[in-house]
Amino acid sequence: MQLQVKKRELTDSDFLELIQARENSFYRIAYGYVQNQEDAKDIVQEAVCKAYIGKKRLRDPEKFYPWFYRILANTACSFLRHASRAVSIGLEEADLSSTNDEEHWNNTLAIQEALKQLNGKTRTVIILKFYENMTFAEIAQILRKPEASIKSIYYRGLKFLKERMQSHEAESSYPR
């Protein structure tokens, strides 16, 4: 997903264009963390502000988007930490049929609970994958980790979610 710009310092126009070209994507990811419109908008606004302040330090403008997604992810994690909000990912509309256990994905509340227990990095990988359908290479570039590590984090995260779902299903199937 690396998008290229000429190697020169970003002007205000460049910055605005780059942000506007992907603002929907930024919003979707922020929404993935907080699951409400107002907080998601606050996160996007804060990330844009931080990026504007730091744009002079961006050595390679070609790496703008990975750099910005990193700021966005850090801002969202920081937002959740500071607000102490137990917000999780709502997967109510998620199409997870590519997994083999489709029936396990139906209880969205349980998935939300499970996702809350993922650590920050795993949660970021899952959000970038679920909400933006990014490739592992793209996520690796954003998180500055080898692609293999990202794959491993992703599948570990999915496995964790599946286990939590199975456990939840077992609990809910007990006669009351």
């Binding site: 605005l16 942000i19 506007q20 603002e23 929907n24 919003y27 979707r28 929404y31 993935g32 419109q37 908008k41 996007v44 606004q45 844009v48 997967l91 509309e93 998620a94 199409d95 997870l96 994958k129 679920f130 909400y131 933006e132 359908n133």
Partner: peptide
Amino acid sequence: PNPHIPVDIPSNLDEVV
């Protein structure tokens, strides 16, 4: 574009930016 989880985009996102 994301095929997994659709999210409604607010109309005032430009203003937020």
